[in-house]
């Protein structure tokens, strides 16, 4: 009898809370669909630059699944390799045969190398008899010297993700509590300006996000030995901007939540899709039109910048687009936050 009453009450509560029901049924479908697109898309084709390679090898490599881009000069190809446009350069130097791999994504480098070795093995051996080529492939890496582990490669993304995730949750819940306990109303009954509320929150949380960003970056690089080729200050700057976006987004979304429970519900809707698009998974395998979705995700820019800095030693000019994007997100969310405060006070 009591069990029945309890069960009935829970069912009734659920029916009342439409958003929870929608989440319960639709969120798993959303996440599964995303996973389908991430893991089940087109196969990854390594981009190979070739210089002075016999034309017959081109078609062989293409048949094996590589995308061939002939270059006329080595420095030109190397510049594109550094920018991450290419997976590898295949070139000849005298009678030596060399492969230069991009290296910041170990799995991508590995598959490119494997493809080259398997496709051309017989040719290299055959040519050996005429002594046109040396038997040994000269392998070199643009980034990471071939020592990068999987953790080195997705570590930078995780560094950004955790800053983003925890600040988002914390800011969302803190602002929500301000609303539910009535302190926000009391705040708005004082002569405070709306922008002062928003910037006060930014400053207060800012202190802790700086500490958190520093700690996460320091720990993963120094204690866990995450591969680090760039400037620590840039990592810090990126992490901080990412936290700023998380903070402003968290407070903004909390105005649409009535309880802590509803803040948690934003995780599968806001956080999980961003993880898929952040670069943890190779997006080259995804449907091209779906790939474009990543441009709407703050975490994508943060992760892109962090990877660039830590794996490829990129400097400020290389990551400036990411920095601007994160700043633009923050400013947009700040403005929206100020607008949302109108719900609390009419002016």
């Amino acid at each position: 009898m009591r069990i029945r009453a309890l069960a009935l009450r829970i069912v009734r509560q659920f029916i009342r809370d439409r958003r929870t029901i929608a989440l319960l049924f639709l969120a798993p479908l959303l996440v599964l669909t995303l996973m389908y697109f991430v893991f089940n898309g087109q196969s990854v084709k390594p981009d190979l630059a070739t210089i002075g390679i016999p034309a017959e090898w081109h078609s062989k490599l293409e048949q094996a699944g590589a995308k061939i881009e002939p270059y006329s000069s080595l420095p030109e190809a190397e510049a594109d390799l550094r920018k991450g446009k290419l997976s590898a350069i295949l070139s000849t130097e005298g009678n030596r045969f060399s492969v230069r791999l991009e290296g910041s994504d170990p799995s991508e480098s590995k598959s490119a190398l494997l493809l080259i070795q398997q496709t051309l093995q017989s040719d290299i051996e055959r040519d050996l008899t005429s002594s046109a080529w040396s038997a040994k492939l000269d392998i070199s890496y643009e980034h990471g010297e071939g020592r990068l582990t999987s953790f080195d490669s997705f570590g930078p993304v995780l560094v950004g993700f955790f800053s983003f995730f925890f600040v988002f949750l914390l800011a969302g819940v803190a602002f929500l509590r301000e609303k539910t306990t009535g302190t926000l109303e009391r705040l708005m009954a004082s002569p405070i300006r709306r922008f002062e509320v928003v910037f006060g929150y930014l400053a207060g949380f800012g202190v802790f996000t700086i500490l958190q960003a520093t700690l996460i970056a320091w720990f993963s690089i120094q204690a866990l030995g995450l591969y680090m080729d760039g400037s620590f200050w840039l990592v810090l700057l990126t992490n901080l901007l990412l936290s700023l976006v998380a903070l402003t987004l968290g407070t903004l979304l909390s105005t649409f939540a009535g309880s802590e429970f509803q803040i948690i519900q934003f995780i599968p809707l806001v956080i999980v899709p961003q993880v898929f698009f952040s670069g943890l998974f190779n997006l080259d395998a995804m449907n091209p039109w779906l790939q474009k979705l990543s441009y709407a995700m703050p975490l994508y820019y943060g992760a892109d910048a962090l990877r660039g800095i830590m794996l490829r030693g990129e400097d400020l000019p290389d990551i400036q687009i990411d920095i601007y994007a994160l700043l633009a997100f923050s400013i947009a969310f700040i403005v929206l936050n100020m607008a949302a405060l109108r719900k609390q006070r009419a002016f």
Binding site: T181, T183, R186, A189
Partner: peptide, 30 residues
């Protein structure tokens, strides 16, 4: 609004803070 005092039905206080800290905060707002 700076010349008006307002008390809502809920107590609207920060329960983690002491009474003094609460008062200091709201005093600064005014």
């Amino acid at each position: 609004l700076g010349r008006v005092g307002y008390m809502a039905q809920s107590d609207a206080l920060y329960s983690e803070l002491t009474g003094k800290q609460n008062l200091e905060f709201f005093a600064s707002l005014y």
